[in-house]
């Protein structure tokens, strides 16, 4: 992670599948850094997206995040991400603090479902589906911004929380029931993060991207006092 001076990537025609599930609360305090507060009830977000273009080419990206609050603001704390592009893994890690690794990430649309999968060396580590998609208005959708824990020599090994808060312009939106077929905890740095109840799933076509970094936080201080504005 460099000096947070990265330029934005603005990408049109992104397709994004997002599942929200309630999770067991037993590990929430230890799973989140002290800066962040778990939601009541705790939730996890499972997303798989395809980006048709970027400065390093087209790519797919999958993420697992924990719902949380940075002070009073809704956020998603990234546990881990996977992309099918080594260049994207490097760029997202270097520029936006993503813990992003190489995998086979796919997003498929069927008549009765939309399905995202992640496989590591041929072994499936995530299968997330939206069942029975029904059109809704994009104005009903609210996606929380990322908070990524960046660890690198620039941070002196202490780590820093990077807020990645893209805008979304929705062109199409659907909603359905979420189904989590496969979730390999170890592959997602998610020990003890056990989904216990489905909430919802959405699929959108939108313009979004990766904006310039505006805020970073000290993971060990409350976000209210430990936030630094960059621009």
């Amino acid at each position: 992670m460099g000096d947070f001076g990265t330029e934005a990537w603005e990408i049109a025609g992104v397709e994004l599948l997002s599942l929200t599930l309630e999770i067991d609360d037993r590990v929430m305090t230890s799973a989140l850094p002290p800066a962040l507060h778990p939601t009541i009830p705790p939730v996890a977000y499972f997303t798989v997206a395809t980006y048709p273009d970027s400065p390093v080419g087209a790519f797919a990206l999958a993420q697992v995040r924990l719902g949380c609050r940075a002070a009073a603001l809704p956020r998603g704390f990234l546990l881990r991400a996977y992309s099918d592009s080594a260049a994207v893994c490097e760029a997202l890690g270097q520029r936006w603090g993503y813990d992003c690794r190489l995998a086979d990430v796919r997003l498929r649309r069927y008549h009765d479902r939309i399905e995202g999968t992640v496989a590591l060396d041929g072994r499936e580590v995530l299968r997330a589906s939206l069942l029975d998609p029904q059109p809704i208005s994009g104005s009903s959708i609210f996606y929380v911004s990322n908070v990524n824990l960046a660890r690198g020599p620039e941070q002196g090994g202490r780590g820093v929380l990077v807020q990645v808060d893209p805008d979304y312009t929705f062109h199409r939106a659907e909603r359905g029931a979420p189904e989590l077929g496969t979730f390999d905890h170890a592959s997602w740095s998610a020990a003890g993060i056990d989904p216990v109840w489905p909430v919802t799933a959405t699929f959108v076509r939108c313009d979004t991207g990766f904006p310039r970094i505006r805020y970073v936080m000290d993971p060990n201080q409350l976000a209210r006092t430990g936030t630094r504005k960059l621009r």
């Binding site: 929200t20 939601t39 809704i136 208005s137 104005s139 929380v144 909430v199």
Partner: peptide, 14 residues
């Protein structure tokens, strides 16, 4: 109040 999960945040609906 902000720590609660609002209906709109969890479940997209008009």
């Amino acid at each position: 109040a902000a720590q609660l999960l609002s209906a709109r945040e969890a479940y997209p609906t008009p």
